[in-house]
């Protein structure tokens, strides 16, 4: 079957019983159908039978039952809304409680942030110090022995110092 024949069938026969004009149009349009008369007869007969398909019985109280069942739906929703709706006093208490909670959260978060920042700063200073301490330049390392030797100087001889102070004049006379 050609596309235009298919479309004209959809337009004229499938959805309703075709009028005389539509039947004539259909007769002219069905080029590729061999036995046009028989084909149309079958289409119309099928239409007629489909139109006669009996309705399935629906109980008379169907609508009432559906409406009753549906009516319980908003009731449930209203219950929920009622449960969530607060008296002005309770609303104030809940608001105050929520404010305290929010303030506490902000405080804790702020303190944590401050602590974190402090830790970061300390760590940064330590890092600089460590960098200096860990990486002495070559000169420092090369003079290390000398510096070490200097720090290992003999202890001060107090007795000798006293004796020398007593003989100060003698030396001066030279």
């Amino acid at each position: 079957m050609k596309k235009h024949e298919f479309n004209i069938l959809a337009k004229t026969v499938w959805k309703h019983t075709p009028s005389e004009t539509e039947l004539n149009e259909l007769n002219r349009a069905l080029d590729s159908v061999a036995d046009k008369e028989s084909f149309l007869k079958e289409e119309l007969r099928l239409n007629e039978l489909l139109g006669k398909l009996p309705d399935v019985s629906v109980p008379s109280n169907f609508t009432a039952r559906v409406v009753e069942a549906a009516a319980t739906q908003p009731a449930r929703r209203n219950k929920l809304i009622t449960a969530l709706t607060l008296s002005p006093l309770r609303r104030r208490r809940v608001t105050a409680f929520a404010a305290v909670i929010v303030a506490a959260i902000i405080g804790v978060t702020g303190w944590k942030a401050f602590e974190h920042m402090n830790r970061v700063e300390t760590a940064q200073s330590a890092a600089v110090f460590t960098e200096i301490a860990i990486e002495p330049d070559f000169e420092t390392i090369s003079n290390f022995e000398t510096i070490y030797d200097l720090s290992q100087a003999p202890e001060v001889d107090n007795e000798l110092l006293t004796a020398l102070s007593q003989t100060d004049t003698g030396y001066d006379s030279y």
């Binding site: 309705d55 399935v56 629906v58 169907f62 549906a70 009516a71």
Partner: peptide
């Protein structure tokens, strides 16, 4: 908007075609 009578009208209008469709 919660209009039950409008719902009733719709149920009344479509109960037969819907039941036919589901049954078939």
């Amino acid at each position: 908007q919660g209009d039950i009578s409008a719902f009733e009208t719709l149920v009344e209008k479509y109960k037969q075609p819907i039941t036919n469709y589901v049954a078939r």
